[in-house]
Nucleic acid binder design. Structure first.
Lengths: 149, 149
DNA sequence: TTATTAAATAAGAACTACTCTCATTCTGCT
DNA sequence: AGCAGAATGAGAGTAGTTCTTATTTAATAA
């Protein structure tokens, strides 16, 4: 008992107002080891080796708890459903984290060479796309307004 | 019959080796009007106003046909399932269009100011992320190898 | 340390987004 | 017009995710 990692996770839970359960500790340890952007199912499969009785719903619920607490983040903000792009012009996107709408951004002159150079050898680049995440005008406003009856 | 749009869509279908059906024409027209990155369900709801008997499966099938033909494209390459990011360091992603794996890219020095300036007024920027789509090393290789028994 | 209370868990039902199957209809060619 | 292959509609089937509820567990107070 009391490995450095376990101690720091206990602290993290206290900070984020989360109860420190055994399941959460194992999930946390597993996530820190899986650096390849796993899906909930992949995480579940790996955790079950160590904790055979854990439920998939617990994995999902705690992933959401960790996401809300900022302990981990989400790579793809539109995993819920396919989104179609009919604008063939080169452009970038603004994604609202609240209402999930996607707004096209006017094409900006950006030097992408340093980015493309960071691609490992053997990989084939087809398309570069940039996205900004945040709050759209509408959601930004409604978040500002004080809670009133 | 024979509006300019209809004629050009007929041509497009011929180029892409797709039969020109009434459903496809209406879908195409609808897509060109919806510039807000709609989901298949939203597209279906809108098409049904004009074509009440169309089936959702037809919308999905033709969206895939249009995607393959390059008539439209897809905004989010990971809509299939949630993907977790445990790397808190600032970095960007390479997304393999074949096997859907996500590879972290080493942080590159890029001037993002022109991109951030393109955000409409009233929007709140929280995070800028860049992704490169293409083929990872492994998929790149297996695509090159000649088809043999 | 134990009692209390609120929160977390396991299990499986339910729901949503999407795909498949197949009988019928339509398109493109002759 | 006639034919062959492709597309459609309807609904069943599947995968990923969320909800519900009874039980267990953690955090706090006594």
């Amino acid at each position: 008992m009391g490995s450095p990692q376990e101690v720091s996770f206990q602290q993290l839970c206290r900070e984020k107002q989360l109860a420190m359960t055994h399941q959460r500790l194992v999930l946390y340890r597993t996530l820190m080891q899986m650096t390849d952007h796993p899906s909930p199912e992949q995480i579940f499969d790996r955790i079950r080796v160590e904790l055979p009785s854990i439920s998939l719903a617990t994995v999902y619920k705690n992933l959401h708890a960790f996401l809300e607490a900022g302990i981990v983040s989400e790579v793809s903000p539109h995993h819920g459903s396919l989104r179609i792009e009919s604008n063939a012009e080169r452009h970038h996107h603004f994604i609202c984290m609240e209402c999930h709408t996607i707004t096209d951004l006017a094409p900006a002159q950006i030097d992408e060479t340093p980015l493309i150079s960071s691609v490992p050898p053997g990989f084939q680049v087809e398309q570069v796309s940039m996205e900004i995440r945040g709050l759209c005008g509408r959601c930004s406003e409604s978040n500002l307004s004080p809670p009133q009856a």
